[in-house]
């Protein structure tokens, strides 16, 4: 187990209860020969209103942490706390009102036979909202989709348009914590800018807490204050975004990641 750099994280956790606390979390899949230890003893904290980035190697367990937090993966060990409450194997309905997630793959996260309208109205009615019609219209404009998309089915939408529907769905219950799994990797930069601005605004208005996975360091740098770097199931380093900008990292993998995301590919062409 590598040492984890907690230092910069602790000052924020002292005051009020953190929105998310992850303590010694391990997640695995399968058993015997095919067992995968997807996450190994992860630790990190997010104060309310913070924005935390998870970056790292593909397949290093970033999505798995989010899925364990939302209760989609049951095989885990350790402690997870949301707003001070310990999470068990089951999640209450209340939990889902606080925590919402945007999935990584916009092609897989929408039901192929439900129109945009159905997706959003079901979500809203499950959370017992009134005036569903107005809310749907508002949500769609928020994510930059016009009313002409409201009754479309997923196969009539492009990848970026689907992702925006998925973001609208996550925003619908008005959660206080958003888990974002590569929310903008399917979007072009102009829509990405709109979504990132939307996320910034929402955070200012409603004091949302974000836990965001992305492999795009510039996006993470834009939205987050702290990042955790993962490799092969382990969090190898936690550092602040300022340090990241100044390439002040101690772990060789982080160094490598930062180097290559600044001036990559050029050299090989």
């Amino acid at each position: 187990m590598s040492e984890i750099n907690h230092v910069r994280n602790t000052d924020a956790t002292t005051s009020s209860t953190p929105a998310i606390e992850i303590d010694n979390l391990s997640v695995w899949f399968g058993h015997g020969h095919d067992r995968v230890d997807a996450v190994k003893s992860a630790n990190f904290n997010l104060p309310t209103g913070a924005s935390f980035g998870l970056v790292g190697e593909s397949g290093s367990g970033k999505s798995t942490i989010l899925r364990a937090l939302t209760g989609l993966v049951k095989t885990w060990q350790g402690t997870m706390r949301v707003n001070g409450h310990d999470l068990g194997k089951k999640r209450s309905k209340d939990f889902y009102k606080q925590v919402q997630m945007v999935f990584q793959d916009p092609y897989a996260s929408l039901h192929p036979r439900h129109s945009v309208d159905q997706v959003l109205s079901e979500t809203l009615s499950l959370h017992k909202f009134k005036n569903i019609n107005d809310r749907i219209e508002k949500l769609l404009t928020d994510v930059g989709l016009g009313p002409q998309f409201r009754f479309r089915y997923p196969h009539q939408l492009s990848g970026g348009q689907r992702q925006r529907v998925a973001i609208a769905r996550a925003l619908a219950p008005e959660p206080s914590i958003l888990l974002l799994d590569e929310p903008t990797s399917a979007l072009d930069v102009s829509v990405q800018a709109e979504i990132l601005n939307l996320l910034t605004d929402l955070r200012e208005e409603q004091n949302l807490t974000y836990l965001m996975v992305s492999h795009n360091l510039a996006v993470v740098g834009h939205l987050c204050e702290n990042i955790a770097v993962m490799q092969n199931g382990e969090i190898v380093e936690i550092l602040s975004v300022e340090d990241m900008r100044e390439l002040k990292s101690t772990h060789p993998y982080t160094q490598n990641l930062l180097q290559s995301s600044l001036g990559f590919v050029r050299e090989e062409c």
Binding site: Y96, F103, H114
Partner: peptide, 20 residues
């Protein structure tokens, strides 16, 4: 993922089976 997504809205097994 789209089934996971409705689970995250707190939908129960019955609803997921019948409606999704």
């Amino acid at each position: 993922d789209y089934i996971s997504a409705v689970k995250l809205q707190g939908a129960g097994a019955f609803r997921i089976i019948v409606k999704h």
